[in-house]
Amino acid sequence: MSEFRDAFRTAISLLVNFDGDLMAIVGLSLLVSLSAVFLAAMVGLPLGAAVAACRFPGRQAVRVLLNALLGIPPVVIGLIVYLLLSRAGPLGALGLLFTPTAMIIAQWLLVTPIIAALTQQTVSDLHDEYAEQLRSLGVGSLRAIPTLLWEGRLSLLIAVMAGFGRAIAEVGAVIIVGGNINHVTRVMTTTIALETSKGNLALALALGMILLLLALAVNAAALVARDIVNRLYG
C-alpha cells in the first residue's frame, strides 16, 4: 500500500512544482487527443446521423461496420496506421511516422466509430420523434441532419466525451505509431508504460492520477459548456 501513498505524494509534488517535462507531456496528450476527437466528431457526428436519418444503399452495411469497428483493439489500429505511414508503406513519403500527426490519425480512427455509433443511436431515437414534423415543415433528410444533431446535443456531448476518454487513455496505438520518443511523441499513457517498465511504480501511478485529473478537468469543462449552451438555447 505504500506505493499509493508514495504515488499520491509524487503526483502532488509534480503538480505543485509545475514540472516542465510533465507539462509538455500533458500538453501533447491534450493536443493529440483533443485534435483526434475534434476530427472524429466532424466525421462521426454527421456519419452517425446520416445512418440514422437517411435511407441509402449500403446503410445496413455501414451500421454493421460501425458496430464492428467499436470492438477493434487499439493495437490493431496502431499497426494498420504504422504500416500505412511506414517508409515502406503507401503513405511513407509523407514522413508522418513517429510524429504527433500519426498519433492523431490513429486516435481519430479509433474514436470515429465510437462517436458515430453512439450518434446513430441517439439520432435514431430523435428521428423517430421528429421525422413527421420535420417533413411537414419541408425538411429533407439531408437538411434534417444538422437539426437532429443540434436537438441531440446533450446526449451527443456524452458521446464525444466517451470518445475523448478512449483517446486520452489509449496506449497501444500511440506507442506504435508515435514511438514514445522523448519530447516528441511521449504522452501521458506512454510515459506511464515506460515508467512502469522501469519499475518506477509510484511515479507511474502518480502519472495515472494526473491523467485521471486531466480527464476529470476536460469532462467538467464539457459539462459547464453544456450548461451554458443549455441556458442560452433551452
Binding site: 421528429y130 414534423q133 411537414s136 415543415l137 437539426t147 436537438e151 438555447y233 433551452g234
Partner: peptide
Amino acid sequence: RSQQAMVFQRPVLLRRSVAA
C-alpha cells in the same frame, strides 16, 4: 407543400426557446 402545415396530437417541439 409550402402552403401547408400540420400540427400533431403531441406537439413536437425543438429543444430551443419558444421564439426559436
